[in-house]
Computed example of a mutant assay.
Amino acid sequence: MDLGLKGKIALVTGSTAGIGLATAQGLANEGASVVVNGRTQERVDQAVAKIKEVSPGADVTGIAADLSTAEGVSALVEKLPRVDVLVNNMGIFEPKAFEEITDDDWLNIFQANVMSGVRLTRHYLPGLRERNWGRVLFVSSESAVQIPAEMIHYGVTKTAQVAVARGIAETLVGTGVTVNSVLVGPTNSEGVGTFVSQMAKKEGVDEATMEKQFFETARPSSLIKRFETTEEVANMIVYLSSEQASATTGSAIRVDGGVTRAIL
């Protein structure tokens, strides 16, 4: 299937590792002109090199900017005035008891997970509407539906992303611009891998045992009983970014390994 992405300019935020990097790689493989983003130039350069190593002919560049701040977003859009595909993937998480989540914690995670996508979409949307084609994606989580007790502030930001995506889609009635959110399940990304490794060390078990325990206790509703790979998630994001996904908009698409107990 030709996804119709050749020559499209795609920005993937937070794409120096994990789901973002896998998505950038997938879009590059489809012929898109991909822009990688991360907070440091070193990490951005490493990600660009990794993509080019896998796809030597890929058109991929990078912009270092901290998108959790308005200043960082301004710096990025100044360097990249146009995009056709915007993947709002950048985000942070931190397991923390509710009583210990400070005002600063709430504000910081909201700035990173919600406002980064809000600011970027607000900037690029007029151009997408004018050209009557575009794809905007918010990489959310099953935590938007099943708020995790161990990090309530994270879950709230993931719910907010779904609401923002649906609301923006409502403003684009009858256009060729789609806006969707992707509800991702537990994924073996860089951050999760570190978390599992630390927990395994703390419990005195290997990582495979820790993973099994995680799905027995923390996410028992999972149907695949394992962490998803970043590529499995990226495959859905790349499809939703494509010409072929033209009738899917205003939707929250689940790639969660069946962890959300719902038929809709």
Rank of each mutant, 00 (worst) to 15 (best):
A234Y: 04
E228T: 09
A97C: 08
E142M: 13
S242M: 01
V118L: 08
I9M: 11
L5T: 09
V118R: 03
G193R: 10
G191I: 13
K225I: 01
E53Q: 14
Q244K: 15
N29C: 14
N88M: 12
S74P: 01
I237R: 01
L183N: 12
N29L: 14
V156Y: 02
D84E: 11
G31D: 05
V164T: 10
L183Y: 06
A10C: 08
E231C: 02
D103L: 13
D103R: 11
T13Y: 08
D256F: 03
E78Y: 00
D45Y: 05
E150L: 11
Q213G: 06
A112H: 05
G26C: 11
S143D: 11
V156K: 02
I168C: 03
S251V: 02
M115G: 02
V156Q: 03
S68M: 11
K158Y: 00
P220T: 05
G38R: 08
A163G: 10
S55P: 00
Q244C: 06
T159R: 13
S242K: 01
G91C: 14
F227A: 00
P56C: 10
Y154E: 07
R131Y: 00
G134C: 03
A169H: 04
K201S: 15
G193Q: 08
P56R: 12
L27D: 09
I147K: 01
A245F: 06
D2I: 00
V35L: 14
A247G: 00
Q46R: 12
N29Q: 15
I168Q: 02
I109T: 10
T159G: 13
A163K: 03
Y239I: 03
A49F: 00
G127E: 06
N180W: 04
A17N: 11
E232Q: 15
E170A: 15
E78V: 00
I63H: 06
K6M: 12
E78L: 00
A144T: 00
L80W: 11
Y124W: 08
R43A: 12
V114W: 11
K202G: 10
A200K: 10
L3R: 07
L86E: 14
I109R: 04
E211F: 11
A144F: 02
A160R: 05
E130A: 02
G191S: 15
I9R: 14
L128P: 08
A32P: 09
G117E: 05
E30R: 10
E150M: 10
A262P: 05
R226N: 04
N235C: 01
N108C: 06
A169M: 05
H123A: 03
A10I: 07
E231G: 07
N37Q: 08
G185L: 01
Q213D: 09
T249W: 09
D206G: 10
I101K: 04
M1T: 06
R119G: 00
K79A: 13
S116H: 04
K202M: 15
V118T: 04
H153L: 07
I51H: 04
S221W: 01
A10P: 07
N180E: 07
Q146L: 07
F215R: 08
L11V: 06
N29W: 08
E78G: 02
D84C: 08
I263C: 09
L223H: 02
V34A: 09
Q46M: 07
L21M: 13
M236F: 12
F93G: 09
R129A: 12
D59V: 14
M199C: 05
T260Q: 10
